[in-house]
Design a protein around this nucleic acid. Sequence first.
DNA 1: GAAATGTGTGTTTTT
DNA 2: CACACATTTC
Length: 710
Amino acid sequence: MSSVVCELNPIQRHAVETRANNVLVLAGAGSGKTRVLVHRIAWLIENNVSPAHILAVTFTNKAANEMRQRVEQMLGVDLKKIWLGTFHGLAHRFLRLHWREADLPQTFQILDADDQLRLLRRIYKTLAVNEEQYPVKSTQALINDSKERCLRLSHLEHWDAPLIAVYRNYEDICTQSGLVDFAELLLRSYELFQKHAALLRRYHAQFAHILIDEFQDTNVLQYQLIRLLAGESASLMIVGDDDQSIYSWRGANVGNMKSFQRDFAPAQVIRLEQNYRSTAVILQAANAVIAHNADRLGKKLWANGATGDPIVVYNAFNEFTEARYIADQIHKWRDQGKALRDVAVFYRANAQSRVIEEQLMQRGIAYCIYGGLRFFDRAEIRDVLAYLRLTVNAADDVAFERIFNVPTRGLGEATLALVRNYATHHQVSLWIAAQALLEQEQLTARQKNALADFLRLLQGYRQAAVTMPLAQLIEHVIKSSGLDASLRLDQSEAGQLRVENLEELINATHQFASTLDPAEKDQQLKSFLDVAALEGGEDKSTTDDRVQLMTLHAAKGLEFPVVFICGMEEGLFPHAFALKRDVNIEEERRLCYVGMTRAMQQLYFTYAENRRWRGASVLRRPSRFVAELPRELFTCDTLLTAPEPVSFDHVVEPLANAGLKKGQKVKHEDFGVGTVLGVEGEGETLLVKVQFVYAGTKLLSPLYAPLELM
DNA sequence: GAAATGTGTGTTTTT
DNA sequence: CACACATTTC
């Protein structure tokens, strides 16, 4: 028997070794789906398929990296040549290779969602579009949705005239500025292969095997792209679970699974239904909940593990006591000597994390937020990147506008309007327009000076980008653009954080540069910008022993011994938006199913009877998903004393000088638990330096800071 | 033109 | 309640 298949059950092995051309693997939660894919790739390579002939698509970059590592480990080979990544990553790779055929400038840049919105806002202003009638965000969604349904402007003649005007203007600016948005990456690739038959034939010859993970979350465009790439000859394996389809709001189309069986007939269907992850209790409960959905392909998961403990349902008085309960349970878990990294807290909306964070911090429980605001999405980081984008692509008007007066340099709306005006009339980029404007007499002396300084700065960066190593360049930009200086003026908590983020950016660049081939120096900056746009931020290292907080969506594909799902309330989960239509309720239920099936040993549902909503406390009803749990599978963990006594924990007497010495453990109202590093000064000027577990090092005055000894 | 207020607004999930 | 935006004041 081959070495790569010996740890598989018979059905998994069947999937790994199948010779069928078109295979649909219906893989239930925890049934070893990733394992099958990894083994399949390894098996193919062992059977003399060159890695270069394999195309493998995953849902996230993280999943792609993981898969690559696991196959490399298994085979002890370097998988440089395999085409493995997300749809967007792969599409981007096609466009970088074939920019000419795709009608793009070589220096094209990715326009991410945030910049896309900014651009649309600007267009709204120039075209004087009524935002009440056509909300910008809706327009943005409309544009992206139509691209993902393979529709170009020519197909959208039924749209209202203002929307068509906005879209046309948007496309013009993108073309002129060499910008490609997320959906455009896919659509361009699709059209590239449609238009260039010879190119397509080349890839047909190359991609003998195509594997796609999380197929239930692919959209129409992605499906069409795959159809095109597969052609007549490729052997396809798609893996998915219709019960875990949770991205229909983003255009994902579960129907693709049925379409596959039709378009690629005859397709072999393999069902992985044995769950290796969860206890029987958790699995039964998850099955019971998902059974309330009508539209399913049909699949029955069964467990072979222990029965396990009942699910714990906790009804809290409000969101504060809910968070406190979760923190208390995690505290107990840690006191048993268990690892924090084995615990996860899921919620429906990002905003819910704050209360929980506060409670965890109070108890000195280390946590990390998985997902959420990503590193490269922070405004200050994006400002730096905008400078860099301009050095690569001088026509990038979106970047130009972003930093035109950031940091403030005396160039306001009035000057920008002149530049824009010149640019539109002469059909040139803003940068060129600004240069031309300097030669003319329209500007005041002050405007002229400020603009000249700005352009000189940009010109300098352009040259620096050629001569300096990547990390040095970024540091140079941060320091000399004045971004750093202007952020340092802000003494607030948030301001300091932003300065730290810029420092972190320099660090990240050093690390990134070390992974690249130094010979291709001029490519480094471009690659860096591409990664920043496509991957958005680093995956938090899971090596740290921390509780993991994340949205239910972010939880897909992960597993944890202990899982809390909080905010189990009607209107929150299922979300109020979904309550309007029943189809959406089914997606919410699948989301619940995804969350539940992440748990290996212990699952908690918590909900609050009152929750603050727009300032006021509102009475809440428990989620229908709680009611769908079979009664014998859960116990209620409810405090006997109701209502909760009001906590006065935060009212703390100012600390006496005496107790504060090096090594002393203290607790701060906001920053949580920490250790005193040192004491400086005396009397009124007394300051303590405290290293907090979570909040970092702070200098505090014990006379005023809400500190207490522990 | 740029800080400093004040007013209004709206809140899902994200490659 | 918190944030983005508009208006006011310097």
